[in-house]
Design a binder for these strands. Structure first.
Length: 563
RNA sequence: UGGGGGAUCGUCUAGGGGCAAGACAUUAGAUUUUGGUUCUAAGAACCCAGGUUCGAUUCCUGGUCCCCCAGCCA
């Protein structure tokens, strides 16, 4: 029985499953599957499907299988199988011992095909691919029957056996379902069931040279596994009559219900494997795990948590309408998670030197900083303070605009967890005229515990002590695309090149961070106070820290400044 | 111009013959040693036209627009 947790409204799929249970369909059993083809890495679109399939199984007390849909040897590789398992697990889902491969069903599939021929429901066609295409007709005109359509059962049986035996070259023959060449649904115009592919399959090697198509293998795989609800994306709606035809004609014991939903599209990125592969191959990104990529591996490296992704998928919902989700929703999900979990830390990305004139030279003192105001259990840490510090360039303005609450000549600002300082001068480079340092004085009583600690100033800024700071490289990311992808569908024949965002990666080679960050684990996530959430990139070494910005903090000042 | 789907705030998603709900985003205010968080408030939508009806966004009819299908890909 469904646990309607989160009072979230029931989507149309869950509603249908509920109805099936009430009608005692499938004996109230709920069994789903996530069936990726191992021809690429998983992305956030797959995450939606994963959350849906595994989520429904869990909610209804059912099961969800992981199935690799590996019926095309020319595209699939073992390393993707590994990667897929890793990503599904990372997302927090478990298929127990139910890892299946369509390729494990090749013999059973073959036997089903033979029975279809024996029933007169399939035949070996010897037309070329081009001929088949022209016989198929068009969207508006019916197709024509192949001259081989009525060849004898025995001849088809013999040919099919010899196809399997390797007697023919690729493309010489194909096994077709015998349905209706005049069907208004082109998928029903005698679709191919088996084709010859003399290619080595990553799992079955050269054991086979004929391979079943998706339309034949998928319904039967579902049936073999006792899948009750077979969830897929909208473009397969047209295939459902064929899915049902295969189920019926093969007389399976479990006739699964195919249900289609709209795939996930995210604004300002691409989601098709083909386009993602193109980005990788053209070197537009570093690889499949480039933090700009919408792949699970990319998001993970970027600093996203599984929890945030799951949460995002839940908020996105499930429906049949084509939609494009704004990045803001994804960003909200990760901020929400990291706000309560990520330790705060101070880091200066665009350093500007500040000299505190009335602070004794050579003196150092510790100030206490809160690790996470949202979580007292994370405690506090000591930070070293000294006469020379770095602040953010943005936190000083020689000619401050209205409502600028930070440092400017004559004005005061609070240094986070430390003193209030006042700007008393600006040093400029003699040649360039650029500001090279700020001169300040501090109020010795303004630190926490001091007599002036409660004194209010408009702004509080972050800082690092120059003698104590550790250098780091920081990588800032923006969306991959300037334009929004219109369609996530994999195979548009001709479609305009997406406009890549030239600012998608900005590297800041000379930043300064708190010394405590020197020894944190790869992947650790932090909030750089007032800036955003960052995580330590695997490119980091003992000599060089590299941080990725997962997402910036919301910034209402930026909105005030440039409307 | 065949067939299959779809159309509700800027974006997602509910709902349903009788005040159109939530989330994100936006705006305003309060709190705040993060211009963060949190809290409060506000603005913001039923594709169009007829019909049925006391009443239609919902039902009916006819349009319009969008997406998918002519792989031996999935």
């Amino acid at each position: 029985m469904a646990t309607s947790d989160h009072h979230s409204p029931v989507d149309f799929i869950r509603a249908k499953i509920l109805a099936d249970q009430e009608a005692q369909r499938f004996g109230q059993r709920v069994h789903t599957r996530f069936p990726p083809e191992p021809n690429g890495h998983l992305h956030i679109g797959h995450a939606k499907s994963i959350c849906l399939n595994f989520g429904i199984a869990r909610e209804f007390g059912g099961l969800c299988n992981l199935r690799l849909d590996d019926t095309n040897p020319t595209k699939e590789h073992l390393n993707y199988v590994q990667s897929i398992q890793e990503d599904v697990r990372w997302l927090g889902f478990d298929w127990d011992d139910r890892l299946y491969f369509a390729s494990d069903y090749f013999e059973a599939l073959y036997q089903s095909a033979v029975r279809l021929i024996q029933k007169g429901k399939a035949y070996v066609d010897s037309l070329t691919a081009e001929e088949i295409r022209s016989y198929r007709g068009t969207l508006t005109t019916p197709g024509m029957e192949s001259p081989y359509r009525d060849r004898s059962l025995d001849e088809s049986l013999d040919l099919f056996a010899r196809m399997r035996g390797g007697d023919f070259e690729d493309g010489a023959h194909v096994l077709r379902a015998k349905i209706d060449m005049a069907s208004p649904n082109i998928n029903m115009r005698d679709p191919a069931l088996y084709r010859i592919r003399k290619a080595t399959h990553y799992r079955t090697g050269d054991a086979w040279c004929i391979y079943p198509t998706y339309d034949f293998a998928h319904p039967l795989s579902d049936a073999f596994e006792g899948i009750t609800h077979s969830l897929c994306t909208l473009e397969f709606e047209d295939h459902r009559p064929l899915y049902d035809w295969v189920m019926r004609e093969c007389e399976v014991s479990c006739h699964s219900q195919q249900i289609e939903f709209a795939r996930l599209n995210l604004a300002h990125t691409v989601m098709s494997k083909r386009k993602l592969l193109q980005l990788v191959e053209e070197g537009q990104v570093q690889g499949w795990d480039d933090p700009r990529m919408p792949t699970i591996k990319g998001l993970r490296r970027r600093g996203y948590t599984p929890e945030a992704i799951r949460n995002f998928c839940e908020r996105v919902g499930v429906a049949k309408r084509d939609s494009v989700i704004e990045m803001g929703l994804l960003e909200h999900a990760i901020r929400e998670d990291l706000n309560r979990s990520a330790p705060r830390v101070m880091a200066v990305l665009h350093p500007l030197k500040v000299i505190i004139e009335n602070y004794p030279e050579g003196q150092t003192e510790d100030v206490e900083a809160v690790n996470n105001p949202e979580d007292e259990s994370q405690g506090t840490r000591q930070l070293s303070f000294s006469r020379e510090i770095y602040i953010e360039q943005d936190d000083f303005r020689e000619n401050p605009p209205k409502k600028f609450f930070r440092l400017s000549p004559g004005q005061e600002v609070r240094l986070r967890y430390a003193y209030i300082i006042r700007c008393i001068g600006v040093e400029k480079d003699a040649h360039t005229g650029m500001i090279s340092a700020i001169r300040c004085t501090f109020d010795p009583e303004s630190k926490r515990g001091g007599t002036q600690s409660a004194r209010k100033v408009k702004g509080t800024i972050h800082w690092v002590s120059i003698p104590h700071a550790v250098p780091a490289e920081v990588r800032l990311y923006e969306t991959l695309l300037l334009s929004s992808s219109s369609s996530g569908v994999d195979c548009e024949p001709q479609d305009s090149q997406p406009v890549l965002n030239p600012q998608s990666l900005q590297v800041l080679p000379m930043c300064w961070v708190e010394p405590g960050l020197r020894s944190v684990a790869i992947g650790s996530r932090f909030q750089f106070e007032r800036q955003g959430y960052f995580c330590l990139d695997p490119d980091s070494s003992a000599e060089k820290l590299v941080f990725n910005r997962t997402v910036p903090l919301r910034d209402s000042w930026a909105k005030i400044e440039k409307p």
